[in-house]
Protein backbone atom coordinates (compact mmCIF):
# COMPACT_ATOMS: atom_id res chain seq x y z
CA UNK A 1 0.00 0.00 0.00
CA UNK A 2 2.76 2.33 0.99
CA UNK A 3 4.57 1.56 -2.22
CA UNK A 4 1.46 2.43 -4.22
CA UNK A 5 1.20 5.85 -2.60
CA UNK A 6 4.90 6.34 -3.20
CA UNK A 7 4.42 5.43 -6.86
CA UNK A 8 1.54 7.86 -7.34
CA UNK A 9 3.56 10.66 -5.74
CA UNK A 10 5.34 10.98 -9.09
CA UNK A 11 3.63 13.25 -11.53
CA UNK A 12 4.72 11.19 -14.56
CA UNK A 13 3.03 8.12 -13.07
CA UNK A 14 -0.21 10.03 -12.52
CA UNK A 15 -0.08 11.33 -16.11
CA UNK A 16 0.54 7.85 -17.46
CA UNK A 17 -2.37 6.40 -15.50
CA UNK A 18 -4.70 9.23 -16.56
CA UNK A 19 -3.93 8.88 -20.28
CA UNK A 20 -3.51 5.10 -20.12
CA UNK A 21 -6.87 4.42 -18.46
CA UNK A 22 -8.87 6.18 -21.14
CA UNK A 23 -6.69 4.99 -24.02
CA UNK A 24 -7.19 1.42 -22.82
CA UNK A 25 -10.93 1.95 -22.42
CA UNK A 26 -11.22 3.31 -25.97
CA UNK A 27 -9.01 0.54 -27.43
CA UNK A 28 -10.96 -2.15 -25.60
CA UNK A 29 -14.41 -0.94 -26.62
CA UNK A 30 -13.57 -0.08 -30.22
CA UNK A 31 -11.49 -3.27 -30.42
CA UNK A 32 -14.59 -5.36 -29.65
CA UNK A 33 -16.19 -4.09 -32.84
CA UNK A 34 -12.94 -4.31 -34.80
CA UNK A 35 -12.76 -8.02 -33.95
CA UNK A 36 -16.48 -8.64 -34.56
CA UNK A 37 -16.23 -6.91 -37.94
CA UNK A 38 -13.05 -8.82 -38.84
CA UNK A 39 -11.09 -5.59 -39.36
CA UNK A 40 -8.00 -6.37 -37.30
CA UNK A 41 -5.81 -6.19 -40.40
CA UNK A 42 -7.21 -2.72 -41.12
CA UNK A 43 -6.22 -1.74 -37.59
CA UNK A 44 -2.76 -3.17 -38.19
CA UNK A 45 -2.42 -1.12 -41.37
CA UNK A 46 -3.67 2.04 -39.65
CA UNK A 47 -1.12 1.76 -36.86
CA UNK A 48 1.75 1.43 -39.35
CA UNK A 49 0.38 4.38 -41.29
CA UNK A 50 0.44 6.38 -38.06
CA UNK A 51 4.17 5.75 -37.86
CA UNK A 52 4.72 7.04 -41.39
CA UNK A 53 2.52 10.05 -40.57
CA UNK A 54 4.73 10.94 -37.63
CA UNK A 55 7.88 10.76 -39.79
CA UNK A 56 6.22 12.80 -42.54
CA UNK A 57 5.41 15.49 -39.99
CA UNK A 58 9.02 15.48 -38.80
CA UNK A 59 10.28 15.88 -42.38
CA UNK A 60 7.88 18.73 -43.12
CA UNK A 61 8.62 20.35 -39.77
CA UNK A 62 5.01 20.07 -38.65
CA UNK A 63 3.65 19.05 -35.27
CA UNK A 64 3.83 15.26 -34.94
CA UNK A 65 0.20 15.00 -33.86
CA UNK A 66 -0.95 16.82 -37.02
CA UNK A 67 0.86 14.32 -39.23
CA UNK A 68 -0.46 11.36 -37.26
CA UNK A 69 -4.07 12.47 -37.45
CA UNK A 70 -3.94 13.64 -41.08
CA UNK A 71 -2.44 10.45 -42.50
CA UNK A 72 -4.42 7.94 -40.42
CA UNK A 73 -7.71 9.72 -41.18
CA UNK A 74 -6.86 9.91 -44.89
CA UNK A 75 -5.97 6.21 -44.96
CA UNK A 76 -9.16 5.26 -43.10
CA UNK A 77 -11.14 7.32 -45.62
CA UNK A 78 -9.41 5.56 -48.49
CA UNK A 79 -10.08 2.12 -47.04
CA UNK A 80 -13.72 2.99 -46.48
CA UNK A 81 -14.03 4.22 -50.08
CA UNK A 82 -12.35 1.17 -51.64
CA UNK A 83 -13.50 -1.58 -49.31
CA UNK A 84 -16.70 -3.51 -48.74
CA UNK A 85 -17.94 -3.79 -52.30
CA UNK A 86 -14.84 -5.42 -53.68
CA UNK A 87 -14.08 -8.84 -52.24
CA UNK A 88 -10.39 -7.96 -52.38
CA UNK A 89 -10.28 -6.06 -49.06
CA UNK A 90 -7.42 -8.06 -47.64
CA UNK A 91 -5.28 -7.58 -50.76
CA UNK A 92 -6.09 -3.90 -51.27
CA UNK A 93 -5.20 -3.08 -47.67
CA UNK A 94 -1.99 -5.08 -48.02
CA UNK A 95 -0.85 -3.34 -51.18
CA UNK A 96 -1.64 0.24 -50.18
CA UNK A 97 -0.15 -0.38 -46.78
CA UNK A 98 3.08 -1.83 -48.24
CA UNK A 99 3.44 1.23 -50.44
CA UNK A 100 2.92 3.63 -47.54
CA UNK A 101 5.67 1.78 -45.67
CA UNK A 102 7.86 2.32 -48.73
CA UNK A 103 7.11 6.03 -48.49
CA UNK A 104 8.11 5.78 -44.84
CA UNK A 105 11.50 4.41 -45.92
CA UNK A 106 11.96 7.36 -48.24
CA UNK A 107 10.95 9.86 -45.55
CA UNK A 108 13.31 8.28 -43.03
CA UNK A 109 16.14 8.61 -45.55
CA UNK A 110 15.25 12.26 -46.15
CA UNK A 111 15.07 12.88 -42.42
CA UNK A 112 18.42 11.19 -41.80
CA UNK A 113 20.18 13.28 -44.44
CA UNK A 114 18.58 16.56 -43.40
CA UNK A 115 18.80 16.47 -39.62
CA UNK A 116 21.93 14.35 -39.19
CA UNK A 117 20.82 11.88 -36.51
CA UNK A 118 18.10 12.14 -33.90
CA UNK A 119 15.71 10.42 -36.29
CA UNK A 120 16.36 7.07 -34.63
CA UNK A 121 14.97 8.25 -31.31
CA UNK A 122 11.89 9.81 -32.92
CA UNK A 123 11.32 6.59 -34.82
CA UNK A 124 11.76 4.37 -31.76
CA UNK A 125 9.41 6.50 -29.67
CA UNK A 126 6.75 6.48 -32.37
CA UNK A 127 7.09 2.77 -32.97
CA UNK A 128 7.04 1.65 -29.35
CA UNK A 129 5.65 4.56 -27.38
CA UNK A 130 6.84 6.23 -24.20
CA UNK A 131 3.88 6.58 -21.87
CA UNK A 132 6.01 7.62 -18.91
CA UNK A 133 7.19 10.74 -20.73
CA UNK A 134 3.75 12.23 -21.43
CA UNK A 135 3.30 15.78 -20.17
CA UNK A 136 0.29 16.75 -18.08
CA UNK A 137 -1.34 18.58 -20.97
CA UNK A 138 -0.71 15.71 -23.41
CA UNK A 139 -2.22 13.15 -21.08
CA UNK A 140 -5.31 15.29 -20.40
CA UNK A 141 -5.78 15.73 -24.16
CA UNK A 142 -5.35 11.99 -24.76
CA UNK A 143 -7.87 11.24 -22.02
CA UNK A 144 -10.40 13.71 -23.46
CA UNK A 145 -10.10 12.49 -27.06
CA UNK A 146 -10.25 8.80 -26.22
CA UNK A 147 -13.19 9.42 -23.86
CA UNK A 148 -15.03 11.06 -26.78
CA UNK A 149 -14.36 8.05 -29.01
CA UNK A 150 -15.54 5.67 -26.27
CA UNK A 151 -18.71 7.75 -25.99
CA UNK A 152 -19.26 7.50 -29.75
CA UNK A 153 -18.80 3.73 -29.68
CA UNK A 154 -21.23 3.32 -26.78
CA UNK A 155 -23.88 5.59 -28.32
CA UNK A 156 -23.56 3.91 -31.72
CA UNK A 157 -23.22 0.40 -30.24
CA UNK A 158 -26.73 -0.79 -31.12
CA UNK A 159 -26.83 0.21 -34.82
CA UNK A 160 -23.16 -0.74 -35.19
CA UNK A 161 -23.89 -4.21 -33.88
CA UNK A 162 -26.79 -4.61 -36.26
CA UNK A 163 -24.70 -3.56 -39.30
CA UNK A 164 -21.93 -5.88 -38.21
CA UNK A 165 -24.02 -8.97 -37.72
CA UNK A 166 -26.60 -8.46 -40.48
CA UNK A 167 -25.90 -5.59 -42.90
CA UNK A 168 -28.92 -6.38 -45.09
CA UNK A 169 -31.36 -6.29 -42.21
CA UNK A 170 -29.74 -3.07 -40.96
CA UNK A 171 -30.16 -1.43 -44.37
CA UNK A 172 -33.81 -2.48 -44.51
CA UNK A 173 -34.42 -0.98 -41.09
CA UNK A 174 -32.99 2.34 -42.25
CA UNK A 175 -29.56 2.22 -40.59
CA UNK A 176 -27.03 4.15 -42.74
CA UNK A 177 -24.70 1.14 -43.04
CA UNK A 178 -22.06 2.75 -45.25
CA UNK A 179 -21.92 6.01 -43.31
CA UNK A 180 -21.62 4.12 -40.05
CA UNK A 181 -18.81 2.01 -41.52
CA UNK A 182 -16.91 5.17 -42.50
CA UNK A 183 -17.52 6.78 -39.10
CA UNK A 184 -16.29 3.63 -37.41
CA UNK A 185 -13.02 3.55 -39.37
CA UNK A 186 -12.64 7.29 -38.64
CA UNK A 187 -13.02 6.63 -34.92
CA UNK A 188 -10.46 3.83 -35.15
CA UNK A 189 -8.07 6.22 -36.91
CA UNK A 190 -8.49 8.80 -34.13
CA UNK A 191 -7.80 6.20 -31.42
CA UNK A 192 -4.75 4.97 -33.33
CA UNK A 193 -3.32 8.45 -33.82
CA UNK A 194 -3.93 9.47 -30.22
CA UNK A 195 -2.54 6.28 -28.68
CA UNK A 196 0.61 6.19 -30.82
CA UNK A 197 2.54 8.56 -28.57
CA UNK A 198 1.72 6.55 -25.45
CA UNK A 199 1.67 2.88 -26.47
CA UNK A 200 3.49 3.08 -29.81
CA UNK A 201 2.32 2.51 -33.36
CA UNK A 202 3.46 -1.11 -33.47
CA UNK A 203 2.15 -2.21 -30.09
CA UNK A 204 -1.22 -0.51 -30.22
CA UNK A 205 -2.76 -3.39 -32.14
CA UNK A 206 -2.30 -5.66 -29.12
CA UNK A 207 -4.50 -3.43 -26.98
CA UNK A 208 -7.16 -3.48 -29.72
CA UNK A 209 -7.03 -7.19 -30.58
CA UNK A 210 -6.11 -9.08 -27.40
CA UNK A 211 -8.78 -7.90 -24.89
CA UNK A 212 -11.50 -8.15 -27.55
CA UNK A 213 -10.32 -11.62 -28.58
CA UNK A 214 -10.33 -12.67 -24.92
CA UNK A 215 -13.85 -11.33 -24.41
CA UNK A 216 -14.96 -13.04 -27.59
CA UNK A 217 -13.81 -16.44 -26.43
CA UNK A 218 -15.44 -15.97 -23.01
CA UNK A 219 -18.89 -14.79 -24.08
CA UNK A 220 -21.10 -14.65 -27.15
CA UNK A 221 -23.29 -11.91 -25.64
CA UNK A 222 -22.49 -8.66 -27.43
CA UNK A 223 -22.95 -6.09 -24.66
CA UNK A 224 -21.33 -8.23 -22.01
CA UNK A 225 -18.40 -8.74 -24.40
CA UNK A 226 -18.13 -5.00 -25.03
CA UNK A 227 -17.87 -4.27 -21.32
CA UNK A 228 -15.54 -7.16 -20.67
CA UNK A 229 -13.22 -6.10 -23.49
CA UNK A 230 -12.98 -2.55 -22.11
CA UNK A 231 -12.33 -3.82 -18.59
CA UNK A 232 -9.68 -6.31 -19.70
CA UNK A 233 -7.85 -3.60 -21.66
CA UNK A 234 -7.91 -1.31 -18.62
CA UNK A 235 -6.67 -4.13 -16.41
CA UNK A 236 -3.77 -4.83 -18.74
CA UNK A 237 -2.92 -1.11 -18.81
CA UNK A 238 -2.96 -0.67 -15.03
CA UNK A 239 -1.09 -3.89 -14.35
CA UNK A 240 1.45 -3.21 -17.09
CA UNK A 241 2.19 0.30 -15.85
CA UNK A 242 2.66 -0.94 -12.28
CA UNK A 243 4.85 -3.86 -13.42
CA UNK A 244 7.16 -1.70 -15.48
CA UNK A 245 7.38 0.80 -12.63
CA UNK A 246 8.44 -2.00 -10.31
CA UNK A 247 10.88 -3.64 -12.75
CA UNK A 248 13.34 -1.15 -14.09
CA UNK A 249 14.38 -2.80 -17.34
CA UNK A 250 10.83 -3.67 -18.45
CA UNK A 251 9.45 -1.06 -20.89
CA UNK A 252 5.81 -0.14 -20.11
CA UNK A 253 4.54 -0.96 -23.61
CA UNK A 254 5.98 -4.47 -23.48
CA UNK A 255 4.48 -5.06 -20.02
CA UNK A 256 1.02 -3.86 -21.12
CA UNK A 257 1.00 -6.01 -24.26
CA UNK A 258 2.38 -8.98 -22.35
CA UNK A 259 -0.45 -8.81 -19.80
CA UNK A 260 -3.10 -8.32 -22.48
CA UNK A 261 -1.82 -11.37 -24.38
CA UNK A 262 -1.62 -13.42 -21.17
CA UNK A 263 -5.25 -12.53 -20.53
CA UNK A 264 -6.13 -13.70 -24.02
CA UNK A 265 -4.27 -16.99 -23.62
CA UNK A 266 -5.95 -17.58 -20.23
CA UNK A 267 -9.41 -16.93 -21.60
CA UNK A 268 -8.85 -19.27 -24.56
CA UNK A 269 -7.79 -21.94 -22.07
CA UNK A 270 -10.91 -21.29 -19.95
CA UNK A 271 -13.11 -21.48 -23.04
CA UNK A 272 -11.52 -24.79 -24.05
CA UNK A 273 -12.00 -26.22 -20.56
CA UNK A 274 -15.65 -25.11 -20.56
CA UNK A 275 -16.24 -26.69 -23.95
CA UNK A 276 -14.74 -29.98 -22.86
CA UNK A 277 -16.84 -29.99 -19.69
CA UNK A 278 -19.90 -29.21 -21.83
CA UNK A 279 -19.35 -32.20 -24.09
CA UNK A 280 -18.75 -34.46 -21.07
CA UNK A 281 -21.96 -33.24 -19.53
CA UNK A 282 -23.89 -33.85 -22.74
CA UNK A 283 -22.36 -37.32 -23.03
CA UNK A 284 -23.55 -38.16 -19.49
CA UNK A 285 -27.07 -36.95 -20.24
CA UNK A 286 -27.57 -39.10 -23.29
Amino acid sequence: MEQATLMFAHEFVRNAYLAGTFIALACGTIGWFVVLRGQVFAGDALSHVAFVGAIAAAVLGLNEQVGLFALTLAFAGGMAALGRRAQADDVVIGIVFAWILGLGVLLLAVLATSSGGGSGITAANTLFGSIYSLSGAASSLAAAITLLVTGFVLVAARPLLLCTLDPELAAVRGVPVRLLGVAFLGALAVVTAESTEAVGALLLLGLIAAPAGAARSLTARPYLGLGLSGLLAMGAMWGGLALSYAIDSLPPSSAIIGLAAAGYAASVAIAGWRRRRGTQWRAQQS
Partner: peptide, 9 residues
Protein backbone atom coordinates in the same frame (compact mmCIF):
# COMPACT_ATOMS: atom_id res chain seq x y z
CA UNK B 1 -13.07 -13.18 -36.98
CA UNK B 2 -11.64 -14.33 -33.67
CA UNK B 3 -8.71 -15.83 -35.54
CA UNK B 4 -7.64 -12.38 -36.75
CA UNK B 5 -7.68 -11.27 -33.12
CA UNK B 6 -5.30 -14.11 -32.34
CA UNK B 7 -3.00 -13.21 -35.24
CA UNK B 8 -2.97 -9.56 -34.17
CA UNK B 9 -2.11 -10.59 -30.62
Amino acid sequence: SDQTAAIGT
